[in-house]
Amino acid sequence: MAIFKVSPETNITSLIASDEVSQGDVLILEEGVYNQSVFISKSHIRIMAKNQHVVFDGYGELSNGFFLFGTTGVEVSGIKIQNYAYAGIVVIFGSANRILSNIIKEAAERGVDIVRSSANLVWKNEICLTRFGVLLETESTDNWIIENKVRDCIADCFESFFTESTGNAFISNNGCNSGLSCFSAVGANCLAYRNTAFGAHYNGVGVVLGRDCLAIENKSKGNGSSVNGTSNFSSPENTFIADNIMNHNNEIGLYVMSDYSIIQNNRISCNDSIGLSLSPDSSNCLIYHNRIECNAGEDIVDNGSDNNFIRNLTGCCDHWDREAEDLPEKTVMLIAESSGVTLTNKLQIELQLEKAALAKLEERSTRQPEHAKYSHQIFIEQLKDKIARWEALLQQ
């Protein structure tokens, strides 16, 4: 293995293609501005910036910063890449390449473009002012997209584009301010885990056309003009959406258009329209143990068929954050003494008020749709428990 020091005057494409450079060699880029487009077809080459002052600038004329064709195990890391007419980094017919800690901006079409490639790692890159931030195209499978920050994209911050692009994972990425979606995962068996989406015009985190996908612990806020928040649509099957937070989106929090999906343990609150909306095409889904509250429209709208709702909390979040009060006798005595009311009278007054509230809640519960009854039952049980404890105090 050899280490080469490379300057802006070096023709890097020619150097890599020459017999001087073999698989396993390392190219250390000295600081400076490189007006080059680097083509790499040799595997296991490592191209690394010496420091943060290494800049590749296409000046709006060169197509790509780095073009990896049919390579395996190539690393491109620590480089500022800007002003290319197409993409910052392109990988075609490649596998297990490593795109690490680069700063890519003002590439006209793509920040990182992965085409017909698999098992690549795109990690800790910062990308802005492109059409697409990280784009997986045409049968790109089993790629790892981790801890990248992408903002200010004309279209999508992160996207896998075709149904043949399966098994891709988007983990702990941040997408902000996109013209369409922050995250859009097309293809089966994809994972969206612990991503943050903010300011998308359309979707925050979208699972589209892919069956058996997972969307877990994502945060979606301030997204959408039509379908938004975390969205699962276009009839995939068996999508699992759990432990996500979808709040303060401009319209719907979560829109579901799928069969046999599981929506579990999500927090969907304070959205400007419906909290959870199931389309007429959604059926046989399980909606279990979600907190869907304080949305401007209805918390849940079910236009589908045969969907099952179990233990979901709806209504105002103040109810669910408020635990049943447990006033010890000393506290009640202090209240009574300060107001000149005896302890017994104080308890009796409070008890009457709580019983009136209980009766009102029980009457209202009979008029709730099936999926909302669990929420009211929880609060009813809290009130009953409180009343029983206060009655026990009166008997002492």
Rank of each mutant, 00 (worst) to 15 (best):
V26C: 07
N290D: 13
S140N: 11
R194Y: 04
V90N: 10
D212F: 09
C317S: 14
N244P: 02
A197E: 02
I300N: 04
K373Y: 03
S231R: 08
F309Y: 15
C317H: 09
G111T: 14
A357M: 12
L15I: 08
N97Q: 07
L135G: 10
L353A: 08
L353T: 03
L276C: 14
I154P: 00
C294H: 02
S338V: 09
K373G: 07
Q377C: 00
L394A: 08
R364D: 15
E363A: 15
S234N: 13
V74W: 10
L29Y: 03
E217N: 08
N218Y: 04
L358E: 03
E323I: 05
R311T: 08
A96H: 08
L334G: 04
D272W: 06
E217V: 05
S95E: 14
I268T: 05
T342Q: 04
I268H: 04
S43C: 12
Y374G: 01
I263V: 11
S101H: 10
L135Q: 05
I335V: 05
S184C: 15
A169R: 11
V21A: 14
E109K: 11
S184P: 02
K149S: 15
D19L: 05
Q368S: 12
E329P: 04
V208Y: 13
Q264L: 10
K330E: 15
W123H: 10
I40S: 03
C190E: 01
D156T: 01
Y260H: 14
S282E: 08
S18C: 03
I12T: 05
I45Q: 07
S37R: 06
S37Q: 14
C190H: 00
W320H: 12
I145H: 00
V38E: 15
Y288T: 01
K124S: 15
N250H: 07
Q36R: 13
F198A: 11
F170A: 01
I241W: 04
S160E: 06
E325M: 05
L129M: 08
E251D: 06
L191G: 04
K330Y: 13
S101Y: 06
E350N: 15
C176F: 11
F183S: 03
D25S: 06
Y255F: 10
A185M: 10
D318P: 00
S283P: 01
K80D: 02
L334C: 10
L383I: 15
D156P: 00
E30V: 10
E9S: 08
D326V: 11
V150N: 03
E31N: 14
Q377M: 04
N83W: 03
G88S: 08
C190W: 00
Q368V: 06
S117P: 15
S225R: 06
A2T: 02
K373L: 05
E126H: 13
K50C: 02
P328D: 15
E370S: 13
K149I: 14
K219Q: 08
E370P: 08
V341K: 13
S140T: 11
E61A: 03
